[in-house]
Amino acid sequence: MWFAQGAKVPLAAAGRVNALMSDSAASDDSDLRNMVHPGTTVAASSLAAAELTGASGGDILDAIVLGYEVAGRINTAVIPGLREKGYHGCIVATFGAAASAGRLLGLDSIKMTHALSLAASSVGGIMAAAKTSTSREYHAGLAVMLGMEAALAAGRGYLGEPTIFDAAEGFFHIYGEGPKAPQVQRMCADKSTWHILTNMAIKMVPGGHTLHAIAEAAVRAAREGDVSSGDVESITVSMPGVTKLIGPQYPEDLVGMIHSSAFFLSSAIVKKDFTWGQLSMSNLSDPSIRELLGKVQVGPPPRQDLERFCEGGIVSITVKSGRTYTSTVYAPSGYSLHGIDWADVERKYKSLLPLAGVSGERISSGWTLIRNFDTAPNASALTSLL
């Protein structure tokens, strides 16, 4: 287990605990189409399976990419049904864990089919619980455990139902918009339907990914007008399809903060920044931030350039003099289509690892290894530094 001084547990348990701990920082990645977080599951399952098999860094990266591809394509087939029906994205992320683990466990195509079929019969997760409790982290651990258990069972010869995805009352019917085998087959074959470079984003700050772009817009608008929090009359946010504030207007704890558009905007304006340390209890109780929470309101959704918005939004700050400062951010930083800078990833890594009690020397060694992970001899080269 990571951050546990070398403690060892069974394979699927290690993947589960590590995924839960990873997700607890609310700093994972997202498929921006419907906020599935595959990175946690594919990384946790791959590193755990690789410790068992002795796979190299290059093999681990292959397994991680496969997990993204499988999760991304299955996700395509359940958009928009999955989210509209209230299911959490961990349901899709489970398949990433199954595929990544299955790859490193040496499953052939037939056994991999059964691993994914078994995973389809095992999944679960409700969005409502993830927004208001630590069920979100539980979901991440559950997705890895179920995916890895499915891969292990298939590897031992356990058989699933190969037609479970496109059958009547099957997976796509329950979680998507109905059985649609021909369309799904086309989606799986057509690379234009999903691509890691056009749909994925890495979180560059913690919290709900839907809120990152509007926090960036708030920072830009506040800096442009050199806005003082005491001079703010109103804060208006506009996002495609959004007609009410996201999350609680007056959050009282960490779970509320990470899902609160009012907190993200108020904090961004007061600090004129949004960093890895922003989601803290001290900021939650900051009088300047608390004062602005009630001034946040939702404006009409944008009508122009809708194709450019990818979890983006428009923020307008009106000050008491009557002037308004507006900024538009179409997609959050870390969006793969816009490019991702290694310096930003390094900043993220070196901001989070100290919170787990990892020494500066190990953090530095780990970062060097990550930058060259394709040449790593095995998973333990990295996990031994955690």
Results as ranks from 00 to 15, higher is better:
5 Q>G: 09
10 P>M: 07
11 L>N: 06
13 A>P: 08
24 S>W: 06
32 L>A: 08
33 R>D: 04
42 V>C: 04
44 A>W: 05
56 S>N: 08
56 S>G: 10
59 D>T: 04
65 V>W: 03
66 L>H: 06
72 G>A: 03
72 G>Q: 02
73 R>F: 06
81 G>R: 11
83 R>N: 13
91 I>Y: 11
95 F>G: 06
96 G>D: 01
96 G>T: 00
100 S>E: 01
109 S>E: 03
113 T>N: 05
113 T>S: 08
117 S>P: 04
121 S>G: 03
128 A>D: 10
131 K>R: 14
134 T>K: 10
136 R>T: 07
138 Y>M: 11
142 L>G: 15
144 V>P: 09
145 M>G: 09
158 Y>A: 08
159 L>E: 01
160 G>E: 00
164 I>S: 09
185 Q>W: 08
188 C>Q: 05
191 K>F: 05
192 S>W: 06
194 W>F: 14
198 T>G: 06
207 G>I: 02
210 T>P: 06
210 T>D: 08
223 R>K: 12
224 E>I: 00
224 E>F: 06
224 E>Q: 14
227 V>T: 00
227 V>K: 00
228 S>G: 14
229 S>I: 01
231 D>V: 03
234 S>K: 15
235 I>Y: 09
235 I>V: 15
239 M>C: 05
239 M>W: 09
241 G>W: 09
243 T>F: 10
247 G>W: 00
250 Y>P: 13
253 D>W: 02
254 L>F: 15
256 G>F: 01
257 M>P: 01
261 S>R: 00
261 S>A: 09
263 F>S: 03
264 F>A: 00
265 L>A: 02
269 I>L: 01
272 K>D: 00
274 F>W: 12
276 W>C: 07
276 W>N: 10
277 G>M: 09
288 S>Y: 00
288 S>H: 12
293 L>S: 10
294 G>Y: 12
294 G>K: 13
299 G>A: 03
301 P>Q: 04
303 R>M: 13
308 R>V: 04
309 F>G: 11
311 E>T: 13
317 I>C: 07
318 T>E: 11
324 T>M: 07
334 G>Y: 08
339 G>Y: 04
340 I>R: 05
342 W>R: 11
346 E>S: 00
347 R>Y: 07
349 Y>W: 13
352 L>A: 12
353 L>C: 12
355 L>F: 11
357 G>Q: 04
357 G>K: 10
374 D>R: 14
382 L>E: 03
383 T>M: 13
384 S>E: 03
